[in-house]
Design a protein around this nucleic acid. Structure first.
Lengths: 147, 147
DNA sequence: AGATTATTGCAAATTTGTTGCAATTATTAT
DNA sequence: ATAATAATTGCAACAAATTTGCAATAATCT
């Protein structure tokens, strides 16, 4: 078992979920890779896992902070969270949809960086913050995660 | 014609598109409202516009900078761009998906603001920058916009 | 190892988004 | 104003993405 797999296993157990070969496979397909679409992820499992299960696994991974969705226009890509990779921001090309990661920890650095990024013309940007509002419990009940 | 409708009309004409009742209706359903899903938008047209046309209209609005997509997990909502509303960022609740707009112009202010936002527990955030990379022309040909 | 509980695969359904084409509406040039 | 031209819409069908119920399988607990 790799270090990353150990972290994954702990996260799953701590949240009361089992460690399955499918979950390990999906995880290992994501680690060290560029963010990928659901389609790409499904392709890379080579039919070894059913599509429905992959959706359920990613849904679960999202909920317990293993993966997150990186939004590109109205599509999204999946990537591991900061637990498994450097904190990073992205430049995404409106035209070819290439995702260029920027490894900067501070938002200010990031903004300063902007002007100097070789050849990239920023058109727009968004800051998104996810969390829980006053009215919502921080606790995500397990019931909600499954169908 | 309202001021906003005049800006819309100018934008459409400047890009070589016609002003139609459908486009005006979609625009007016968005103005002054919270960001909404495609589903909500379709609902609010009360069958007055076909779904396919609404998709085409939003696609066009996106391209000429009238609307933009606000990403929430793996869904998105539609909102007017800064041309029609204050520049803003959002807090989105992972649980109820409520979108709380934050009216701050500077990213730094925004980050400082974070700690003080009443009752909101931030879990994660992303900064997304859209633009064009070195390899891609800044020009979006009209041909690409239509089907 | 056997009992219990969670997870998966399968098949079908639903939801979301796209397309071709004829009918309609907007714009342009009389 | 009206006719000609070009753009846009509605319709109906299609395609892709995501979800669901349920029986079969695999993981965990004793």
């Amino acid at each position: 078992m790799t270090t990353a797999e150990n972290i994954l296993s702990t996260l799953l157990k701590d949240h009361g979920y089992s460690i399955t070969s499918q979950r390990l496979l999906v995880f290992n397909l994501l680690i060290g890779q560029e963010p990928m679409t659901m389609h790409e992820l499904i392709d890379r499992t080579n039919g070894k896992i059913d599509r429905a299960s992959i959706y359920r696994i990613i849904g679960l991974f999202d909920q317990i902070g293993i993966t997150q969705r990186l939004n590109i226009g109205w599509k999204y890509k999946i990537e591991l969270t900061d637990k498994f990779a450097e904190h990073h921001h992205h430049l995404t090309c409106l035209n070819c949809h290439k995702v260029i990661p920027i490894n900067k920890n501070e938002l200010e650095d990031f903004i300063a960086q902007l002007a100097t990024v070789q050849g990239f013309t920023p058109i727009d940007h968004q800051v998104e913050i996810q969390g829980y509002c006053q009215n919502c419990s921080k606790k995500v009940t397990k019931a909600k995660l499954l169908n």
